[in-house]
Nucleic acid binder design. Structure first.
Lengths: 229, 229
DNA sequence: CGAATAGTTGAGTAGTCTCAAAACAGGTGG
DNA sequence: CCACCTGTTTTGAGACTACTCAACTATTCG
């Protein structure tokens, strides 16, 4: 296992004292690397510096789903992983900070500010997961894509910027939004024809009608009536 | 607002000291009560003692979804609620313990054990939400129902017991699993005809073929080939 | 340049949704 | 006790979305 060796190569030499800061251990992984929880038993807490890690689930007949995505700044704690948590897979080239469980916990005990930050991040994860359930449950393909574009912009911290870089591959977006790649492709075509987005490059989406896109994502548009040929 | 008055009726008289335990304030709500976050600004941390609270989301054209359900023992922290978190709604008669933010945080600072318990619970919430996304994303109606029955058993702590009480109403189960009530009803019929479950009463499911039900829930059964008339 | 991967387009099908109506359950009052 | 009402669950027929499978185009990379 590649990532096992990579992790073990780093000496775990955090000084133990009452007032200390653990030396941040960073590590990088290529796209499609599977992060096996067992390989991270000594340094089970990952903070994503760049890239994206997804939890990949596979049904018995090969249907795939990405249930949760961890983007920059988000925390993946392997200590809380179960058998049903899927396989942590790098959806992009990933760089992470690694912490031992004790170091991470002690950091929170020492700094109230750090503790609050982390609590907020964890809560935010649940909010994202909750919102994602809403997206998956009852939205049409085109609504799911509109939601994904807006979620991407929000989680990349782009504010109200109209150019959103969808850094994930189409297949990964499809797995995340509960669609087939073909259906997702058709949804892109429809969004363009509706004049809500424009794509110069493959993964750069320019939002041409933000209110419309937001309304569509929130199910407020009966887009059937504005049907496109 | 009914729940506002109910909350305010309790005097907030937790003694402030270095070694103290906040007096647990309990409160009860009827089915379909909406727990408005603003009414809980003073006591924003809810621990569910009995019943179930769901986060209800509504799309612009009336489509409903329940994204997350809080069952016994689970913690709902209104401090981390955002506009996209939906409306906390009682799916059953609910009894909760209420804590102020400071009390809840201090409890965790004082007791490492309590802190660990709570961290595990919060992590478990994310695991449930993650698994729920898998259920919603690519499963058929009958697979969703099989998954829901098994999830219900697990979260009620019934172990391997074969009698599962689905305490939620059909409409709520449907909202949670991203189905229409009609489709859910048809899925029940199919599960019965496949001989995987038997229902004496409306909300009591007896699992007659657990391995089959589990395989179906995990997408390992091409149930099309074992089609039922 | 050719091979491999990623993404798009097309036609037909399966499964869920929609809308309508019927069956069922629980409570109230005569 | 039964008729009645209200809300929930089930059944039925048809429409429509997303899936499947296949072929095609575009892009990446050696």
């Amino acid at each position: 296992m590649a990532q096992l060796r990579q992790v073990e190569n780093f000496a775990y030499s955090t000084p133990k004292g009452t007032e200390w800061k653990p030396t941040p251990i960073t590590n990088s992984f290529a796209v499609d690397t599977v992060l096996d929880a067992e390989a991270f038993s000594k340094l089970p807490v990952l903070i994503v510096r760049s890239g994206a890690i997804g939890l990949l689930h596979m049904l018995g007949d090969g249907r795939q789903t990405i249930s949760v995505i961890y983007f920059e700044g988000e925390v993946l704690d392997f200590r809380h992983f179960g058998k049903t948590s899927g396989r942590a897979t790098c959806l992009l080239p990933v760089s992470v900070e690694l912490y031992s469980g004790d170091d991470y916990d002690n950091l929170q005990f020492q700094s109230t500010q750090f503790q609050m930050e982390q609590a907020t991040k964890r809560a935010q994860q649940l909010i994202y997961a909750s919102q994602h359930s809403v997206d998956l449950a009852r939205k049409s393909a085109i609504e799911k894509l509109a939601s994904f574009i807006l979620e991407s912009r929000k989680r990349q911290g782009l504010g109200r910027h109209l150019d959103v870089l969808l850094r994930l591959r189409r297949a990964d977006i499809a797995d995340y939004m509960g669609l087939r790649a073909e259906t997702l492709s058709r949804a892109f075509t429809k969004l363009k024809k509706l004049g809500l987005i424009a794509c110069d490059q493959a993964d750069l989406v320019h939002i041409t009608n933000e209110p419309g896109l937001r309304q569509l994502a929130n199910g407020k548009v009966n887009w059937m009536k504005t049907r496109v040929q």
